[in-house]
Simulated assay, not measured.
Amino acid sequence: MGLYVEAHIRAAVDDVWARTQHPAEHQRWDLRFTEIDYLPRAEGEPQRFRYATRVLPFLTVAGTGVSAGEKERPDGTRTSALRFASPHPLSLLAEGSGYWRYVPDGDGVRFLTGYDYRPRWGLFGALADRCGFRPLMGWATAWSFDRLRLWLERGITPERALLNWAAELAVRALVLVVGCTGFGLASFVRLFGPFAPAVAYLCPLLFAVAIALALFLSPLPGTPAARRCLRTPPTTVRAPRLLATLEP
């Protein structure tokens, strides 16, 4: 599979399964989707679904897929496999497949995914995917997995986690702007009255420290971060046999 993401979640496997297998729950934490709906199915058939992603306020890209899951396995693990495709001409992603695995380890669940897809638009699409879209998809998957972890471990709802992330990003951006441009520096220095010359002398050092913290300080515990997830499989992984049973 082209992309791999793994998160360790300190929660019961039943809880992780519920938050990832129910469309209404899934679409709350997964940044890649705006809407997920199950389609009607006959008894014994795999589950078909429709997904949509709002790319811009006036543009929504939709597609369909089919999924199946193995909830009870002798080793205690669970697996969900899916195939998906989007006929939308503006969707770079044409079709693909992937899986989720749930691996209890005594201290929670190793929740991992592997997936790949075929881009459209020929050579241009392949270059756009390699240089921008695929890294973005990898980041969005990892960020979403950490948002799910915060929901299950700390009770931070996906909506609150997004606000935490936006607020922290805004603060870091403000520190970078002030530190790099000196915007508002004169007014800030005047606040210290007779100590203003000493503060002005120290400002370059203080700004350098602030810029370094804004760039490299780890995200706050309640803020989702892609860096907390494993992005390379620790061992060679194979797609589950269940995936071969699904017809697109």
Results as ranks from 00 to 15, higher is better:
31 L>Y: 11
31 L>M: 11
32 R>T: 11
32 R>Q: 13
32 R>W: 05
34 T>M: 05
34 T>L: 07
36 I>S: 00
37 D>G: 09
38 Y>S: 14
41 R>Y: 05
41 R>F: 07
48 R>G: 02
49 F>E: 00
50 R>K: 11
51 Y>P: 02
52 A>C: 12
53 T>V: 12
56 L>V: 12
58 F>K: 12
61 V>A: 06
62 A>M: 10
63 G>M: 07
68 A>L: 11
68 A>R: 11
69 G>D: 13
70 E>S: 10
71 K>T: 15
71 K>G: 13
71 K>A: 15
72 E>V: 13
75 D>M: 06
78 R>G: 07
80 S>R: 15
81 A>F: 04
81 A>N: 05
84 F>W: 01
84 F>H: 06
85 A>C: 09
86 S>T: 05
90 L>E: 03
90 L>T: 04
92 L>V: 03
95 E>Q: 14
97 S>Y: 09
99 Y>F: 13
99 Y>C: 14
100 W>S: 03
102 Y>E: 04
106 G>R: 06
107 D>A: 13
107 D>I: 06
108 G>K: 02
110 R>G: 08
111 F>N: 03
112 L>K: 01
115 Y>P: 08
115 Y>N: 03
116 D>W: 05
116 D>R: 09
119 P>N: 04
119 P>I: 01
123 L>N: 12
123 L>H: 12
123 L>K: 14
124 F>G: 14
125 G>V: 06
126 A>E: 14
127 L>H: 09
